[in-house]
Simulated scan of single mutants.
Amino acid sequence: MNNITYEEQTKITRAIIKAAVLMLEFGAESKLIEDTAQRLGRALGVDSVEVSLIPSAIVLSTLNNNQTQSVTTTRRAHHKPINMSIVCDVQKMCIDVEREKKDVDYVFNTIKEIQPNHYNRWLVVFMVGLSCASFSYLYGADLNGFFITFLAASVAMYVRHVLAKKQLVLIISFGITAFVATLIASTSQIFELSSTPNIVMTSSVILLAPGFPFVNSVLDAVKGYLSMGWGRWMQALLLSVATSIGIILAFALLSMRGW
């Protein structure tokens, strides 16, 4: 039994849920969030931590004094781009608290200092364009198709960056990005610039595949977090639908029948 006051336990609860919300917002797996919250709670001096997760919020309770002293709090989680560097920083903080017996103030100060690591925008644009173009080449595109895919995917990635900076709703952002990518890639068919236009148009929107949310949804469902799994699966499905709508709108504008 740990002899801590109710006020101290409340402060510990607030620190734990801040770390948990940070992990949820940036795409951590549900099991990892719960395990980290429980480890952090034990390291800070409470007997146990109970966590309930839904896609938009976390309910967290800490129990102490033979489970007779309980503090419960709820925090809303806002959707943000997936960033595993944030998740790793929270994990490192948890390990430091366990090994070096850090106090709750260390947790608050560390969370304030955690910032996402951003790659250079132009490097990301170039590498995404190159990866999509390489995919098209491996799939059988000709040389012209390779360069058109590179151009379409690079411009689409730049548009996606601009829309993200303006904090546009992610679903709308995906639709607009798919529309732009398809417009550029369709030149391979309209002007007969490539003998493999279908591959070009397919490869140019690969950057919008929501693979991470789909993987996390399956992992959450398998490990018993059904509401989280369903929520993440639905989010990934909506992003896929938005991408499809963007492609269809581009086809309709150009009076094309499709791939």
Rank of each mutant, 00 (worst) to 15 (best):
N3I: 04
I4D: 14
Y6K: 08
E7R: 15
T10K: 12
K11E: 10
K11W: 02
I12T: 05
R14W: 03
A20Y: 01
V21N: 05
V21E: 08
E25D: 06
F26R: 15
A28K: 09
S30R: 04
K31Y: 09
D35F: 10
A37G: 09
A37Y: 06
Q38I: 10
Q38W: 14
R42H: 15
R42C: 14
R42A: 15
L44H: 05
D47P: 01
E50Q: 08
V51Q: 12
S52V: 11
P55H: 11
T62D: 02
N65K: 13
N65L: 12
T68W: 06
T73S: 07
A77E: 10
H79S: 03
I82P: 07
N83W: 04
V87R: 15
C88H: 08
C88V: 06
D89V: 03
D96W: 01
V97I: 09
K102S: 01
D105P: 10
V107D: 05
Q115L: 01
R121S: 13
R121P: 13
W122F: 12
L123D: 06
L123Q: 12
V124Q: 13
V125T: 06
V128Y: 15
L130A: 15
S131M: 02
S134P: 04
Y137P: 06
L138D: 13
D142K: 06
G145M: 10
F150E: 09
L151F: 04
L151Q: 00
V159Q: 01
V162L: 15
A164P: 02
Q167N: 14
Q167D: 14
F174N: 14
A178F: 04
A185R: 06
A185K: 01
T187W: 08
S188A: 04
Q189I: 00
I190R: 06
I190D: 01
S194L: 15
N198E: 04
M201I: 02
V205R: 07
V205K: 08
L208H: 11
P210F: 06
S227H: 08
W230H: 00
L239T: 08
A242N: 04
T243K: 14
T243I: 03
I247S: 02
S255L: 03
R257S: 12
